[in-house]
Amino acid sequence: MSINLKRFNRINRKKIFNKLERVDKGAVPAIPKRPPLLHPQYDIESLTDIFLSKFSASAASFQSIDSLTLVPELVLQYAEQHASDMNVVTNISEVLQKNEPSLLWPEPLTLHHGPANGEQSIGLSYADVGIAETGSIVLISSKKNPTSVNFLPDHHIVILNELDIVPNIEMMWKKLSLVAGSMPRAINIITGPSRTADIEQTIQLGAHGPRSLHILLLMEPA
């Protein structure tokens, strides 16, 4: 079968758009203005608390840390307790090393860089934003956060800086200041591990994505 996709497209497009013209179009301005919308408001002082309380509903776990130097040791501990092997896929070691050049990854952890390919039990990422309203972390696809790391490994460990938590979903978009033409390919708002209730409505974690989500919450020492 061969169709001229471009031509086909032009004809269909015209057909559809002809029907979309409103009968009362005269009253509508050329560039419509969306009505202003209300957003739920949260107390800026207690964002971390709100984040943690919402987050606990999502079956994810967390640990607070006061320095990134702790990360390798905590990843090892987590792997020993939960993972079936010591393979970690991550692309943030440079970020961690920037803060702590002598950072060492303890044996027997083996670090892999690049996208995940299903061979690593643990993915380690650095969240771009946290959302208090929903207890979610947000990961933007980039060299530092290839999307496959968020979904292929059995366990996902994510570092989130307390200062990156915003009150609501809208503030998250605002913080990312996204513009068509220079969009990241993927933005994942992640709230807890993968789950399904497709068999007898019984919630089961670890459907296709990670079986567990563990947050290392970086809190600045008071």
Binding site: K54, A57, S58, N91, G114, P115, T134, S136, S141, S142, K143, P146, T147, S148, A180, M183, P184, R185, A186, I187, N188, I189, I190, T191, G192, P193, S194, R195, A197, G209
Partner: peptide, 24 residues
């Protein structure tokens, strides 16, 4: 739908992989 505040994954896809993306 499911009685969740938000689902586990809400994702925004905006095109093919960018030049320095490692996957997609």
């Amino acid at each position: 739908a499911t009685g969740q505040a938000i689902t586990s994954y809400t994702s925004l896809f905006s095109g093919p992989r960018n030049v320095d993306d490692l996957d997609g």
